[in-house]
Amino acid sequence: MITIDYKDRRPIYQQLMEKIEELAASGLIRPDEQLPSVRGLAVELAINPNTIQRAYGELEKKGIVYSVPGRGSFLASGQETLLAINRERSRQELAKLAARAKTFGLSRADFLADAAAAYDEGGTEQ
């Protein structure tokens, strides 16, 4: 369910955070569902347990995860959290698309028109 890309230059804990946010946003982990244990994930991915602890800690600071002492970490409930994650994710995607459009010399108006069209057409996910 969670994989690490070793070619990705970002710290592993950031990659982990992103993966968990993705799983939460897509509904594969539901609110109040337990996240994989630090030990289990460390063994599975052959990475440092301290790194996973750090990722969970940062997610907790962002309010995406809560922890129960002695039991583990759980996904926080609340639609706002999910909406915020999704919004953030789509912003990031948009920023990438915008950067590319700029590089190829697409005008702001054309880019916005394309975005609007995509939004209208893609009302349902394929």
């Binding site: 630090v38 030990r39 460390a42 063994v43 599975e44 052959a46 990475i47 440092n48 347990p49 301290n50």
Partner: peptide, 14 residues
């Protein structure tokens, strides 16, 4: 290498 890393991770966590 991966197996050994996993073992180390488990010992660190445990």
């Amino acid at each position: 290498r991966n197996a050994v890393k996993s073992l180390f991770a488990a010992e660190v966590a445990d």
